[in-house]
Nucleic acid binder design. Sequence first.
DNA 1: AATGAATGAGCGTTCATTCAT
DNA 2: CATGAATGAACGCTCATTCAT
Lengths: 201, 201, 201, 201
Amino acid sequence: MPSESRTFIEEARRAQIIECAIDAIATLGYAQTSLAKIAQLAKISPGSISYHFGSKDELIQAVVSEVARLATEMMEPAIVAQPTATDALRVYLETNLAFMGRHRKPLLALVEIITHARGGTDTPGPYTAQHEIALQDIEKVLAWGQKSGEFRDFDLRSTAIAIRGAVDAVPAQLLQNPELDLELLARELTTLFTIATRRQP
Amino acid sequence: MPSESRTFIEEARRAQIIECAIDAIATLGYAQTSLAKIAQLAKISPGSISYHFGSKDELIQAVVSEVARLATEMMEPAIVAQPTATDALRVYLETNLAFMGRHRKPLLALVEIITHARGGTDTPGPYTAQHEIALQDIEKVLAWGQKSGEFRDFDLRSTAIAIRGAVDAVPAQLLQNPELDLELLARELTTLFTIATRRQP
Amino acid sequence: MPSESRTFIEEARRAQIIECAIDAIATLGYAQTSLAKIAQLAKISPGSISYHFGSKDELIQAVVSEVARLATEMMEPAIVAQPTATDALRVYLETNLAFMGRHRKPLLALVEIITHARGGTDTPGPYTAQHEIALQDIEKVLAWGQKSGEFRDFDLRSTAIAIRGAVDAVPAQLLQNPELDLELLARELTTLFTIATRRQP
Amino acid sequence: MPSESRTFIEEARRAQIIECAIDAIATLGYAQTSLAKIAQLAKISPGSISYHFGSKDELIQAVVSEVARLATEMMEPAIVAQPTATDALRVYLETNLAFMGRHRKPLLALVEIITHARGGTDTPGPYTAQHEIALQDIEKVLAWGQKSGEFRDFDLRSTAIAIRGAVDAVPAQLLQNPELDLELLARELTTLFTIATRRQP
DNA sequence: AATGAATGAGCGTTCATTCAT
DNA sequence: CATGAATGAACGCTCATTCAT
């Protein structure tokens, strides 16, 4: 789907619709968000959304990509710039939680989509891949730390699950308690996983 | 809710419907599960479910109660029987993951329900309370360990979020990779959180 | 439908069901009254009503008959005992409104049924007959008064419609304003129709 | 409700649906009229009605408004133009019955809606207000006649109930006997209520 | 004589999608 | 490009009725 194949105005419409979709999903919840409501928010007709995205699934996929792009842009450079795996792990947690604080709506929308838009056991759902990538990213950092001798000898996948699980648990908390102190949480999680992963004396 | 108020045959039907609902939700996902599909699985008419449960909400509530009963029965006694907070934490993780291994479908269904059955941003959803209780249970164990001197001085809520987040991340993994080694995972998580919480030298 | 064909216990059950049906219809309104609710009120099973009455329509018909019997028993003797048509007309109005005061629930139920349970234009509805009889009863009194020279020369049907219409309008008023002074109303209607029907000088 | 807010084609569809709803209610009765049947009459899909009216209640409200507009347009100017209360009362009866003759179906539909659309005994129902307004309109004419000395001294509410009751009784009669002579009826009712209300010598 | 579990048709409503304009 | 009217299938739910017990 090369961007050259789309006119400028078309690209603008798509961006507008994606933004309104994020707004609607984050505000109303995935189940309560219909194309009609998104259209209403965007002040366009429902048919227009189908025209630009073909189907609801495609729109949702576009939303996911957009948020992922936003998150990656914000987080990845900082992480890969770290000199040590320990620093990278710390910055991973810090940037993730910072993203949640700064881009609450896109994050909430993403969480809504991931938890709601999965298929059955057979069809894997379009966003599990995204999650697998996230885990592998963490595993890379962990493997780095083990290789460099910073980290103790643990199972990569298990530890990645724990770290990612902790991060994924935050939006739900945030939803329930908007006053949640994300900075405190970031410090505590950093400490926790730093201790938990470092080479034991 | 005296058991005398329901016939034997009614109780049997309810159990059958609950089982089929668990099956449907775990297999198809919450959003794709309709009363009609549950009825189809149970080989009864859709109206029959309404007859026995009054509303979809009541059925879902019954499913939640059933799984919660199952889980509590299996896990709580073992946890409270531990002599130290460190043991309690270990057993908490072990029994939770053991439950996932033995009751995969009920567990998946429960997770589906809890993550899906929430309203918009404002309305808290009927099962967020359940989750809060789970966090407080962990916090109790953590506070116990801090008081006894087993654990270091960390923020209770942040640490509870990390632990619960790790546990909650497992079903999604399990769904994606049914061969996941839960025993290994239990050992690794136990080690991780034992190290992370214990009093530092 | 001779009463001999029914056992004593069956007759009692029917009476009980009819009473509960009246209660339900008067309290909840016709549209909100289901056989299940009547059964609940009567503390019997829904199937039992079908057993005793065959169908809902039959039950409704039985309710109508019962209320009509009650009304006729209370009103007819007093009316036919009057020496003049003028007195008969007065007593007709008085007894009708007195019945409404004393048997509010049966009356309300009857009104609910008559206004709700009509078929289409083609099928006349089972209770229009009842209404036609009521009109003819009034016409008899009016014809009597015209023959005796008490009443002026008016169209029987038109005048009967006016009188019956006035009477039928009362329950709706009563429903809206339960404090309605039925005795005042009876006096006023008597005066009005006495003046309107008497031979003009 | 500015007319600019609706397309021409939308307005046409709405009008068509309203007309079919009137037809269905007048023909089948309120209780037997479903959106599906109205849609069938209008040869559109059931979803289309929801599209244009949002809910059944809104459609019913639109029907009521339409008929009320029709009736008011036809009757009010003639009534208020009369020089005396006696004339006004006569014209009130004449225009009401003339309306029934000319707009039988809308009138029947309106009566069906008003008598059916009420909740239980406690909830007043959305159209009882309409009826109260009708009574108050009559009371105004009666009060006028009493003040001018044309009418005798009677209770306003009781007399208004009688007059409105007589008028409201007509549609039911019309339903049962479509050949009913409305002009005769109008003359007779006029005479009746003129005699009944005029100052007695 | 009575039960109550079960049914199936029907209800009002929602919504992704289509298509003539 | 964009519209918005229209669709049709699916939803949760109600209810008179049936029938094995």
